[in-house]
Design a protein around this nucleic acid. Structure first.
Lengths: 188, 188
DNA sequence: CCTACCGATCGGTAGG
DNA sequence: CCTACCGATCGGTAGG
């Protein structure tokens, strides 16, 4: 009882689940409190507002994913290998924490403005930088790296969305080789 | 003044714009009425509820796009040409009516369950059927047509989203050849 | 105009 | 004495 960290963790996981399912606007503080099993006022012991809770969840998840992508980008490997590793990263995030993946997808519009502009913290920038360097090294054709990033992200995101909607089934990691192949074909 | 069709049309266009900008949950009936320049009660002369208005806008736009995709699919042309024509369809919808495009994108989750299951009314089904027939004719490799549809839709949708967010600029139709090329490379 | 629900805040309490 | 949590309630805004 003295340690609120368990309650805090449950607030985060239940809020993430509800936000991913019904959107932030569609989720009330009452919904979250009921799912956690505490009074509404208890939430305000841990987060100053619903919006701050949403923002905190987004920025934390987004920054971690971005850091993972940056780490792949900084290695000295062929671009094709890097693409495969980033695809695996996204697929595993989807399979292991679908709520977080969905939430990052749909909360982008609300919170992307809060993301620091530096290449470190931004997933799209991190993906784009991988392509920028590949172009500089002559490994892929010369093309707007923002467009290449869009193609790659779309090729991963849309199958993920189809899986959420039940149009595709099974873990996304099983499709990772297909997705890597598609990205490589689309950008080379 | 006696003819309410002008008011109805303005309700539809203003609601579409606001729904696309701020989401359905983030848009109040008061917002819509203020944008149209009528009292809130006037909206209820034309639509029984906000949800019905949202559903009507979605189903109408979705059905029209689906019909256009079906029309391309039913022609006797090489698959590569069909892909190019469907890409043009999406790009032109985005450029000419971005509000509708954005709204269809973000309201899918809420209203996709209301779409009739038949191949006629469903955009994804229409795209999928084009690939299914191409596989039957041996024009592209044998692969889950749902996955191929996801790849193609992701390759168009993500650059559109990047354009909305300001990461890409200019009309999407200018990128149509690139997108067609990317889809063809990814699915062949 | 009505009713339902929203986010947020209050003073109080109880385990440790 | 501290603080995580509670029940009750606030003013405001929503759809209808």
């Amino acid at each position: 009882m003295r340690d609120g960290s368990k309650t805090r963790a449950k607030i985060e996981s239940e809020a993430l689940r509800l936000f991913a399912e019904k959107g932030v606007a569609g989720t009330s503080v009452r919904d979250i409190a009921a799912a956690v099993g505490v009074a509404e006022a208890a939430l305000y012991r841990h987060f100053p507002s619903k919006d701050a809770l949403s923002r905190s969840l987004f920025l934390e998840g987004y920054a971690r994913l971005a850091a993972d992508v940056v780490a792949v980008g900084e290695t000295q490997q062929p671009i094709e290998t890097k693409i495969g590793q980033v695809v695996d990263l996204f697929c595993r995030l989807f399979d292991d924490n679908r709520s977080l993946f969905s939430f990052l997808l749909l909360a982008q519009h609300a919170h992307l403005a809060d993301v620091p502009e530096g290449r470190e913290g931004n997933v799209v920038e991190a993906v784009k930088n991988i392509f920028t360097r590949a172009i500089e090294h002559g490994d892929i054709r010369k093309e707007d790296p923002d467009l290449l990033a869009a193609l790659a992200l779309g090729i991963v995101a849309q199958p993920a969305i189809f899986t959420i909607y039940g149009r595709l089934s099974g873990p996304l990691i099983a499709r990772a080789p297909d997705l890597t192949r598609a990205i490589w074909a689309a950008v080379r």
